[in-house]
Amino acid sequence: MSADDDDAADRTFEQRARADLRRGIEQTPPDVRARLDSIVAQALAQPRRPSVIRFALPAAAVVLIAGLFVAQQWRATPAPDASAADDFALLIDGDNLDLVEQMEFYQWLNRQPGILDDAAPPAPAQRS
């Protein structure tokens, strides 16, 4: 038997099986039909649940817009440059703050000849 013949035999078989199955459906017993009618009535009386997608889509859109807005704001804020960050680090350092506050004193001290030299410890004596 060729493939075409086999296909044709399949189609014929399907048609006959389909006719038999449909005959079976037509022969559904009356008591079962009555039960099916009451099942349909019961299903139609069910309250309908609102579709999730009806609420999910607007909610997702709101979240997306809010996210985009936050991202845009975050990018628009200028990042502090490196030199400003260095100045800030200098200012918050305790030692450097003292130096800045007493800068005038150290400048005066530097201008006085000999004071810093006298304050230095004496150099060790050289042996002859």
Binding site: I39, V40, Q42, L44, P47, R48
Partner: peptide, 17 residues
């Protein structure tokens, strides 16, 4: 019948729209 009933009720509740 039980299976058909359950399937019909679910369809009517969830997918009627």
């Amino acid at each position: 019948l039980d299976a058909v009933q359950e399937a019909m009720i679910k369809l009517a509740r969830r997918y009627a729209d």
